[in-house]
């Protein structure tokens, strides 16, 4: 079943992408329309060729030499998404210090001391490097009068 999805889902997605780029062209002048539509044309031809070859079973999916764990994948994906959404609210430092140790430990890393040490070190170095040396701001959160 997954093999079926892996083969046909990208094709469906490509058709959807082509359709979007073809139709969302309100306000386009003639010359700025020409190029995207030409590209969509090429993409449609290629995707259809791909579809044909897939149906004829002539395409093979890449074989990965690595063994993967679906559980670990879900962990890292979910954690990363939550992390990115947390940054605007909790600031970079707090979010990172929550995300990194949690994710590493959930993935199965055993050395708790090492996890916290590396996470804190990384965040501190990033802070020094970006905010102090280069004066590039990072998202911050203000708690109890402190800006983190």
């Amino acid at each position: 079943m997954t093999k079926y999805l892996d083969e046909y889902l990208p094709i469906a997605f490509l058709y959807a992408l082509s359709a979007y780029f073809w139709w969302d062209v309100e306000d386009f002048t003639a010359d700025s329309l020409m190029y995207p539509r030409a590209l969509v044309g090429v993409l449609l031809v290629l995707t259809t060729l791909l579809l044909v070859f897939t149906l004829m079973k002539k395409m093979r999916l890449p074989q990965s030499k690595d063994e993967n764990s679906p559980f670990k994948f879900c962990v890292v994906l979910a954690a990363s998404i939550v992390y990115v959404f947390a940054v605007p609210f909790l600031g970079f430092a707090v979010s990172s210090l929550l995300y990194a140790p949690a994710t590493a430990l959930l993935l199965g890393y055993k050395r708790k001391g090492m996890v916290f040490f590396v996470s804190i070190l990384t965040v501190v170095l990033i802070y020094i490097g970006f905010r102090t040396v280069l004066k590039v701001p990072l998202p911050t959160v203000t708690l109890l009068g402190m800006t983190l």
């Binding site: 890292v76 954690a79 990363s80 992390y83 990115v84 940054v87 970079f92 990172s96 995300y99 990194a100 994710t103 590493a104 993935l107 199965g108 890393y109 090492m114 996890v115 590396v118 996470s119 990384t122 965040v123 990033i126 970006f130 990072l138």
Partner: peptide, 15 residues
């Protein structure tokens, strides 16, 4: 360990 590397790399990605 890749389990530790992965989240740390993510930190760098965000920054």
């Amino acid at each position: 360990s890749t389990d530790l590397l992965a989240p740390i790399i993510m930190l760098l990605c965000v920054v």
